[in-house]
C-alpha cells in the first residue's frame, strides 16, 4: 500500500510516447485478469463438494413448520413424507406415527442399583429399538462401573470388558436422559427445538434442530448425542415402528437422546431397555397412578436422584434406588 497516494496503474492517464509503459500496463491487466480467473476457478473447485448436498434438503422440508405449530393435516403430510423417505432409503414401509401424551400420565423411571450387573444389554436394545446410527456407533445409555463405597464418577470406568459381570467390589450405574422436570437443555436451546411434554418426556424436533450443541454443553448427565455424520442404520436392523418425536431415522447434524421409547410408552408398552434387562433392575410407569409399580417403589424403597448432580436442581424423573 506504499502507493496509497499514487494513481493506480490502470487509471493513470497514459503518458504520450511511452510504449514501454503501455506494454507493462497491458501485462499488468493480463496478470490481473489471470488472477481473477484463477481465483474464480479456485473458488468454484473449492466449493465443488457442495454438489453432493443436492439431496440434503428439499423445499418441502425447508418450509416445514415447528412441531407445535403444525396442524394435524400438515403433520399427516409430514409423516407421509418421512415414510416415503424411509422406504426409499431402506426398502421398508415403516409405521410412522405422532403419538400424543395421555391425560393423567407422567412417566418416571427407576433403576435398582443393587440389582444392576452391568451387562449393557439395555445399551444395545436401545440402539436396536431406536434406530441409532451404527457409524459412528451412537448410544443413549452409558453404563459406568464404580468401585463400591463411592459415587465419585471420576473413579468410574466406562470401557470395562471383563469375561463376565458383575465383578467383585464394584457396582454399575447406567446413565441416560434423566427427563428432568427442570431441564437445562430446554432452557438453552436457541430455536426451541427441544421441550418438555406434559407426560414428562423431553423431546426433540429433529426437523427443527439447528445443531448448535448448546444443549449438549448444558446437560449435566451426558445424555445428548449429536449426529456428526449422516446416520447409517443397517437395513436388517431397522425398527419399522416409528414415531415423529422418537425413533424415526435422524439426519446428519442434529441432536438426539433417550425419549423413554416414546413410540412404545405412549402406546402403553414398556421401554426396550426395561424389557431386555435380565435382572429386572429397570422399572417404569405412571407416577400419577398410585397403583403403579413406580409409585410403589417411590413409596417403599430407598430412592435417590443422581447422587452427584442433585445440587443442580434439575429434578430428574429418573431415580436410582436400593433394595436394602
Amino acid at each position: 500500500m506504499s502507493d496509497m497516494h499514487s494513481t493506480p496503474g490502470p487509471r493513470e492517464p497514459a503518458r504520450p510516447g511511452n510504449d514501454n509503459g503501455m506494454s507493462r500496463r497491458s501485462f499488468l491487466r493480463l496478470s490481473g485478469g489471470a488472477t481473477a480467473f484463477a481465483g474464480v476457478a479456485a473458488l468454484t473447485a473449492g466449493l465443488a463438494p457442495l454438489r453432493e448436498l443436492a439431496s440434503f434438503t428439499s423445499l418441502e422440508k425447508f418450509l416445514q413448520k415447528h412441531y407445535k405449530e403444525m396442524t394435524p393435516r400438515e403433520m399427516e403430510r409430514v409423516l407421509d413424507r418421512i415414510a416415503r423417505e424411509v422406504e426409499r432409503q431402506y426398502g421398508m414401509r415403516p409405521h410412522v406415527r405422532d403419538l400424543k401424551p395421555m391425560d393423567g400420565v407422567e412417566f418416571v423411571y427407576a433403576l435398582n442399583l443393587s440389582r444392576c450387573i452391568g451387562c449393557r444389554r439395555c445399551v444395545h436394545a436401545c440402539v436396536a429399538e431406536n434406530n441409532q446410527s451404527g457409524d459412528p456407533a451412537l448410544e443413549y445409555i452409558r453404563v459406568v462401573k464404580m468401585p463400591q463405597g463411592t459415587f465419585d464418577l471420576t473413579k468410574g470406568e466406562h470401557n470395562y470388558e471383563p469375561e463376565s459381570v458383575p465383578e467383585e467390589g464394584y457396582f454399575y450405574m447406567p446413565v441416560q436422559c434423566q427427563q428432568c422436570a427442570n431441564p437445562p437443555c430446554v432452557k438453552v436451546c436457541p430455536v426451541r427445538a427441544t421441550w418438555q411434554e406434559p407426560d414428562g418426556i423431553t423431546v426433540i424436533d429433529y426437523d427443527w434442530c439447528i445443531g448448535c450443541r448448546y444443549c449438549q454443553a448444558a446437560c449435566p448427565y451426558f445424555a445428548r448425542r449429536f449426529n456428526f455424520k449422516k446416520p447409517v442404520i443397517p437395513k436388517e436392523r431397522l425398527n419399522p415402528n416409528m414415531s415423529y418425536l422418537g425413533n424415526r431415522p435422524r439426519e446428519v447434524g442434529v441432536v438426539e437422546k433417550c425419549h423413554f421409547c416414546i413410540q412404545r410408552t405412549r402406546a402403553g408398552r414398556y421401554p426396550a431397555c426395561l424389557e431386555v434387562c435380565p435382572v429386572g433392575a429397570r422399572k417404569f410407569g405412571n407416577v400419577l397412578d398410585p397403583e403403579s409399580e413406580i409409585s410403589y417403589i417411590l413409596r417403599e424403597k430407598r430412592v435417590f436422584t443422581f447422587i452427584l448432580k442433585e445440587e443442580q436442581g434439575t429434578l430428574p424423573r429418573f431415580f436410582y434406588y436400593l433394595d436394602k
Binding site: Q89, P136, V165, P234, P278
Partner: peptide
C-alpha cells in the same frame, strides 16, 4: 443370579470397530 458376559462397551467417534461385528452394508439412498 448367574454372571453374564457383558455386551461391548461404548464406541467413541474415532473407535475402530471389531471386524466380526462389522458389515459394509452401507445403505445408499440415491
Amino acid at each position: 443370579f448367574p454372571s453374564l458376559a457383558p455386551a461391548p462397551g461404548p464406541h467413541s467417534m474415532r473407535d475402530r470397530i471389531p471386524a466380526q461385528l462389522a458389515t459394509d452394508g452401507r445403505n445408499d439412498d440415491e
